[in-house]
Design a protein around this nucleic acid. Structure first.
Lengths: 320, 320
DNA sequence: TTGTACGCGTTATCAT
DNA sequence: ATGATAACGCGTACAA
């Protein structure tokens, strides 16, 4: 890559003069200026970004870290982050877990947004600081320079279940997700709490294990069908499992919602196709807001107070 | 962020000694070594990646550039790239157009994979070189250090159309994509050429404009329905438009494939749901191969010969 | 206009 | 066994 030195040599001037021309300063003769500019053009000179920031230390770049390639909504989050940064004159780099530690250990980015669960808190605490604030999504880290942006699972799931009860449902089935995940725990707890609040008994036999995959929802529904004891309504901890369940039920000639109602969680792209009643998590917005919170911390105006994002219920046709 | 100097100060030793400990050299006393290690642990020392690479110049990191957030398959490409790099001990950073020029103008990455159409050839030519090879996807740039990895639209579309002719179809309709796009041009040309080869006449009235969006496919099919002159089969330049067309046809009580057969292109996630016959482009593999080609160029063993990737037909139930 | 010190964090070399 | 310091790369800024 051709640098300022190459240009200086080719133009037979000093690097300072080249620098002055590039930065539009006036202390350069017209002839020299034009000569240098034409040589820059010829040789395809591109200023080295790192060299430039060496003095100022400001790259105006932040890093976003994720690692799960199976969920299309990650692109939505990136888009939200990207848009906010673009509007505010900042740059984004995205990295997957293995590379992000290297990037975060450089002085290149000025902050980070972390989604990847594999990025452990200890590491985050060790790199976070006044000059490197971090926003973590969907988890909470107690640190002065780490802020959490989390989607509220609990209240919206309470709302959903309460609304269903208000519609008259009493016999519930539940397909859970990976049980160590916070998402699963919060959603399931909200479900249990709301039933209890309404004095509705939930039989543990109507709980089915899943792992958030469509396949696991399919299997769970197969088992449920074999039990010969269909609940009125099946709540699934996410859309993928709900869709798997729908497929299994349809294969066994059950009609939805006539024979059984179903709800999901996520509002994935497939949810609309299946007319699935679900909970919409504003992915784009959460990315946008995470970026906003991070930039405010970089500018010194933000706080490390957790930021909560509300999800909303999407009523479609899988509920009677 | 705590650096080697901070550790040296805290341990009351020189930076050299700290460096020696960190790099596992043996010329350090046991007591000093342990003291330094424990202080590193305590203070959460993380070696600065850029500082380290300042000497070697080798970051073993490459950059992938894209900008379209609407297509979920981009994640698949990233996954393919990521996997290859991981297997080969390299790191990946992903950037969107606005930030990638800065990154490429740093000496941070050692090569780039470019998917974004907005990244113009002139810029690529100016940064490409023996120390910075580039792989471009889905376009061709003539440069010693720029290699193309392209998906072959033409032959697979010829195959698809020929197979349909062999099945007995004679009356074709076509919904095209954005006409300036290479994808559209190649697919459409293959369609026309194959019909001509089989002496089948294609009426231009059966060509409908689209822009690759579902909405445009829906509109095109609405117009087609109004024409009261349904072809036997409707070929769509991508899946989104095919799905839009299916929705429009179903709304008007046409059965697929009884009343009209339909094909798409892409094998998007929705294609399976709609049982759409389409062309599967191996996204993961193309990312993986692009990374492989790039790394070979970095290692000095690759060439700038274009690399072609074959797509395959997925027969499903929207074709009689 | 030019020469050159400076900034970043680490590593390598040579002294002590 | 430990320390002092130059070097790495590239552009900027300031004195000459």
């Amino acid at each position: 890559m051709v640098g300022i030195k190459d240009i200086a040599k080719a133009a037979e001037v000093s690097v300072s003069t080249v620098s002055n021309v590039i930065n539009g300063r006036k202390n350069v003769g017209k002839a020299t200026r034009e000569k240098i500019l034409s040589i820059c053009e010829e040789m395809g000179y591109q200023p080295n970004f790192l060299g430039k920031t060496l003095k100022s230390g400001k790259t105006d770049t932040i890093v976003f870290n994720f690692s799960d390639f199976d969920r299309a909504f990650y692109l939505k989050i990136i888009e939200g982050i990207n848009d906010y940064l673009l509007e505010n004159g900042l740059d984004l780099i995205v990295s997957t877990t293995n590379s992000s530690q290297n990037i975060m250990r450089s002085n290149y980015p000025q902050g980070a947004i972390i989604l990847d669960k594999k990025m452990d808190n200890k590491f985050l605490v060790s790199v976070a600081g006044p000059d490197f604030p971090i926003v973590v999504m969907d988890r909470i880290v107690d640190h002065n320079h780490i802020k959490s942006v989390i989607v509220e699972n609990y209240p919206v799931m309470c709302d959903l279940v309460q609304s269903l009860i208000d519609k008259g449902f009493r016999e519930f089935g539940y397909i859970g997700g990976i049980e160590s995940s916070l998402d699963h725990q919060e959603r399931y707890q909200a479900f249990l709490d709301t039933l209890e609040k309404n004095d509705i008994l939930f039989h543990r036999t109507h709980y089915y294990h899943g792992d958030f995959s469509e396949e696991s929802g399919y299997r769970a529904a197969k088992i449920l069908i074999l039990s010969n004891n269909l609940p009125e309504l099946l709540i699934c901890a996410n859309d993928n499992m709900a869709i798997g369940a729908i497929k299994a039920l349809k294969e066994n000639n059950y009609s939805i919602p006539e024979d059984i109602s179903i709800t999901g969680f996520d509002d994935s792209s497939m949810a609309e196709t299946y007319e699935l009643t679900t909970v919409a998590i504003p992915r784009y917005e959460s990315g946008y807001l995470a970026a906003k919170e991070l930039v405010e911390m970089i500018r010194g105006t933000g706080t490390n107070q957790s930021f909560k994002i509300n999800a909303t219920i999407k009523w479609r046709n899988t509920v009677k």
